[in-house]
Simulated assay, not measured.
Amino acid sequence: MRKSVIGIILLSIVIVGIALPMGFSAQQGGKVITYGETTYNNANYKSNVDNFFSQQAHVDPSNIQSKIITASDVNKISGTISQRTYGSDQIFSSALVDLDENGAIKVTVDKAQVTVVTADMYISALKSAGITHGHVYVTSPVPATGESALAGIMHAYEEATNVQIPEAVQEAANQEIYTETQIVENDNVSADQLTKMVDDVKETVQNNNITDHTTIVNIIQNYTINNNINMTNSSIENLATSIGQVQTVQGDVQSYSNQVNQVIGNTSGGFSLDGLLSRFGL
């Protein structure tokens, strides 16, 4: 009887292996590393980044599928947001995405090297893109703001799930990170204060399906007054534009999120072949 059960399980595993996208190999699971091209092309930089991933995620980076994020990849997004153009010697931020971890999305940031964007800022932007589970690790071999890392993180999710994030959704999430980075750097607002405000305002906007720019501006202004937060009118306008952009792509966000949940198999965690085997004592 046990042999029959084992045979059925193994057959099921073969079928699952056929059905899963390329990112979910038996060797790699749902893990992908994205290296900034400057980091990847410098042996010392790459070694430093790999050491961070190894220590924080308890993995061997050499056994994990990887992708190089080029200046061209970043410029496709930054060109429409900040109008800044990066060179091939300026892409440092690197990320590891682990979809095998269960539960809500987590982000671990190398605070010694990522100087502006916090874990909560990444989480907020990733949720804006419909990414709600997995564990993300972000680092850089040299001090960097961290804003360009979001492009790599989203590429990693695409590689791990074989599901493309709609371009408008990527742009909205990157616009959110860029806007928040500018506010933290230029206004007297802490990253923690700003993230809480953005999350609260986004929740209000989404719950009431608000797309009118002036209404979003008024919501932000009232929030800053009630919470004694000092922001310039320009920053409020930019933040309202960013949050409005996130709201306008919610249909695409939901569609993407549904596709990812189908790939992973549930809405609360990742995929683990080892976990499937252990349930049957194999």
Rank of each mutant, 00 (worst) to 15 (best):
R2V: 11
V5L: 15
I8K: 15
L11S: 10
L11T: 13
S12V: 06
I13V: 15
I13G: 09
V14H: 02
I15Q: 05
V16P: 10
A19S: 11
P21D: 06
M22G: 13
G23Y: 03
S25P: 08
G29A: 03
K31D: 04
I33R: 10
G36H: 02
Y40I: 04
N42A: 11
A43N: 11
N44C: 03
Y45C: 05
S47V: 03
N48E: 15
D50H: 01
S54Q: 14
A57N: 07
H58N: 15
I64H: 06
I68K: 11
I68A: 12
I69W: 10
T70I: 07
S72F: 05
I77C: 03
S78L: 13
S78H: 11
G79S: 05
T80Y: 09
T85Q: 14
T85W: 01
S88W: 00
S88R: 02
S88D: 15
S88L: 00
F92K: 06
F92M: 07
S93T: 12
S94M: 08
A95K: 01
A95I: 00
G103A: 05
A104C: 03
I105D: 00
T108R: 07
D110A: 05
A112S: 14
V114R: 08
V116K: 13
V117H: 04
T118C: 12
T118A: 10
D120K: 03
D120S: 14
A125F: 02
I131D: 01
I131N: 02
V138P: 01
T139M: 03
V142S: 15
P143S: 14
A144D: 15
A149L: 10
A149H: 05
G152I: 04
M154N: 00
A156H: 04
E159A: 12
A160W: 05
T161G: 10
I165F: 05
E167S: 15
Q170N: 10
E171M: 12
A173R: 06
N174G: 06
T179S: 04
Q182V: 09
Q182I: 07
Q182T: 09
N186T: 13
D187E: 11
N188W: 00
S190N: 07
D192L: 06
Q193I: 01
L194D: 01
T195Q: 11
K196W: 01
K196D: 06
D200W: 00
D200T: 02
D200H: 02
T204L: 14
N207Q: 13
N209V: 07
N209F: 08
D212F: 04
T214H: 13
Q221W: 03
N222K: 10
N222E: 14
Y223I: 04
T224M: 06
N226V: 02
N228K: 14
M231F: 08
M231Q: 03
N233M: 09
S235P: 01
S235R: 01
N238P: 01
N238E: 13
L239T: 07
T241I: 15
S242P: 07
G244I: 13
G244K: 07
T248N: 08
Q250I: 00
G251T: 15
S255H: 09
Y256A: 02
Q259I: 01
V263C: 09
V263S: 09
I264T: 12
G269P: 00
G270D: 04
S272T: 08
D274A: 13
G275T: 01
G281P: 00
L282Y: 02
